[in-house]
Amino acid sequence: MDYLDVNRANWNARVPIHIASDFYDVEGFKAGKIVIRSFERDEVGDVSGRSLVHLQCHFGLDTLSWARLGAEVTGLDFSEAAIEQARGIAAECGIPARFVTADVYDAVEALGGATYDIVYTGIGALVWLPDLTRWARTVARLLKPGGFLYLAELHPYADILDDETGTTVTHDYFEKGPHVWEYPHTYTGSEVLEHQTSVQFQHGLGEVVSAVTAAGLRVEFLHEHDHTFFRRFAGLVASEGIYRFPEGAPRIPLVYSLRASA
């Protein structure tokens, strides 16, 4: 099984469903909404006039949000359908942006050897990549001297817990995969996908940090957060757009963020 072809078909099928979903609220974005989370804005800092490339950008709402905050943005994704939508949204909103269709491992060549002040990778990206060492080397080649990687990602600890309550360890933290999944739906709703197979890879926190440092980047911080952005487990409680375990319950890390400089 070619994981890349399988996953590309799966994500191309997700695009029209995601575009129409309340989860992404594309109409709200077109009306001026910025979808970057507040902790990301705080940790990245002022992006005015800085060049930023967003790897695995889907249809670009995060990318274009960074543009609204002042960055000069480029988005890259392997899904032709997603990039087509990203370009359309950018044009409709009058936001200057470049969007390129390519696999993340081919980013250096696909972007013509350009380098950037910031390489940004958002929630839910790394699980689609089999080789983090190669990914981190790609990131390092995309950075200008003094630039930095900023990664916000779902915490791998949450992936070993039972899918219903999130209170019992049921999965192997060190089982990297590949894991082949058959899901009729995507995470935004009940519409049935045309291509339902996906291939994913689990990466522990140590693997992420080791790959980044081996690529010659200096880790500035690794922060763990006790909240996420969807109801990952049934017991999570929503408050102001984020989800946590209820007050009094033991807290666990649900998201982490990492910044590493060239």
Rank of each mutant, 00 (worst) to 15 (best):
R37T: 15
L149K: 08
E220Y: 07
A136Q: 13
V199P: 00
R232H: 06
G146M: 08
D226T: 14
G75K: 11
G248R: 12
R37F: 05
R251Q: 15
D103N: 15
Q85P: 02
T167L: 15
V169E: 11
G206N: 09
L258T: 04
V73R: 06
V26E: 04
G147E: 10
L143Q: 06
H171A: 14
A110Y: 05
E92A: 15
F29E: 13
Y3C: 03
R141N: 12
D163A: 14
R8F: 01
C93V: 07
Q196A: 08
V237P: 00
T213K: 12
A107L: 04
I89D: 05
G94K: 12
Y120F: 14
Y105G: 13
V209L: 15
T188K: 02
E43R: 11
C93R: 07
R251A: 10
T170M: 11
L143M: 07
A158M: 07
A140M: 03
V119W: 01
E220W: 01
Y173V: 08
F59E: 14
E194V: 13
Y24I: 02
A211M: 09
A152R: 05
S190L: 09
L151A: 00
L64V: 12
G75F: 03
G49S: 10
I242G: 03
D5Y: 00
E240Q: 15
Y3L: 02
A13F: 04
V180R: 14
D226F: 00
I17K: 12
R41E: 14
A125K: 02
A9D: 14
V139C: 08
G94C: 01
R137C: 09
P184F: 09
A9G: 09
T138G: 06
V108L: 09
D42F: 06
H179A: 10
G189I: 05
A249Q: 13
A125I: 00
M1T: 07
G147W: 03
G206F: 01
T188P: 01
A97P: 03
R231T: 06
A9I: 09
